[in-house]
Amino acid sequence: MDAITLPQLALFVATLGLAIVSPGPAIIAASQSAASRGRRASMPYAMGLAVGASLWCLFALFGLTVLFRWMPSLFVALKILGGIYLLWIAFQMWRHAADPLDMAGETVSGPGFARGVALNLSNPKPALFYSAVIMSVFPSLHGAAPAVVYGVALAVELGFYAAVTALMSTGPVRRRYYGAKTWIDRIAGALIGALGLSLILRH
């Protein structure tokens, strides 16, 4: 524990928070699901997204990025598979963009926890991000320190995705979403599709 200080944790949380809210497939998917389905149906999906993202931190702590350096072809393969999955998500969003919604309230079910985990595991780039941040902020980790870092990362991911879902499922946001659902879903699908293509093409 003596390897970790409060200023280090504060810097880690701030850096991670800025990365989470930057435009990416997970935050787009979480926002679209919350606006279309409501908080109750979308929160399991959001928690899955958070856990999926935090797993990259765990993998970084246990040396996955070292494996990527030794076997760059593995990283490329994961990026291509992840990009294909994101393209599938984008296609589904575009395909169902014009589907009507129940205006009476929240839907009962959404994509679910496992779909959230899968979406955030489809992009291996966060492993490199976590590795770089951890090495920069915590130059020396030993003992229980890695568990503390992972616990903080998980808490931040859960908190941010829960907050985004709660915000995007509010009445005013949902009413604006209903008014432009087709175009919002198509734009969200196009953005996720573009990110998927970028993941495949940028080796």
Rank of each mutant, 00 (worst) to 15 (best):
A46F: 12
Q8R: 06
V173P: 08
A98F: 01
A163T: 08
L61W: 05
G143D: 02
A127W: 01
F160A: 14
A97C: 08
L199P: 07
D99Q: 13
S33H: 10
R95A: 14
P111F: 01
R175A: 13
R37N: 09
H203R: 11
V152S: 02
G83S: 02
L16G: 12
P126C: 06
R115Y: 01
Y45N: 02
I134D: 03
G112N: 02
G105R: 12
G24M: 02
A90K: 04
W88L: 14
V51H: 03
A144Q: 06
A194L: 15
A50R: 05
I187C: 11
A50G: 11
A147Y: 11
L101A: 12
A29G: 06
L154K: 04
F91D: 02
A104D: 11
V108D: 13
G63P: 09
I187S: 07
S42P: 05
M103Q: 11
L119K: 03
A190W: 04
G83C: 10
A50D: 07
T65G: 02
M135C: 07
Y178F: 14
Q92M: 12
A118F: 10
S198G: 15
V156K: 01
P172V: 12
T182Y: 03
V66I: 11
K79I: 01
S131L: 02
R69E: 14
R39D: 01
N120I: 05
L58Q: 00
E106R: 12
E157S: 10
L197P: 03
A162D: 00
G63D: 11
W94S: 07
Y150I: 00
I200F: 09
K79Y: 08
Y85I: 08
M135I: 01
G63H: 03
G52S: 03
S31Y: 07
A127F: 00
M168H: 02
A153I: 09
I89C: 14
R115P: 00
A145S: 15
P139A: 05
D2V: 07
P100W: 10
V13G: 01
L74A: 13
V117I: 15
V108G: 03
Y85L: 14
F160W: 07
G82N: 12
V76S: 14
T65W: 01
I4A: 08
A132Y: 03
S136V: 04
A30R: 03
L199F: 08
H142E: 11
F68M: 00
Y177T: 01
L141F: 06
L18E: 02
F12M: 10
G82F: 10
W183P: 00
P124K: 07
V117A: 07
W94D: 02
R40H: 08
M1Q: 05
F160P: 00
P126V: 05
I192H: 03
R69W: 00
P124W: 13
Y85S: 10
L86V: 10
A180N: 13
S198T: 04
M168A: 15
A35Q: 11
P44D: 12
L141C: 06
M71C: 04
L58F: 13
W56S: 06
F62S: 07
G48M: 09
S140R: 12
R186N: 07
V76P: 00
I4C: 04
R39A: 09
S22E: 12
A153R: 04
A34S: 14
L119S: 06
P146G: 04
L86T: 09
L154Y: 05
H96W: 08
P100T: 10
L11C: 03
P72W: 06
P172F: 06
M93W: 09
T170W: 00
G83R: 09
R37C: 00
A35T: 06
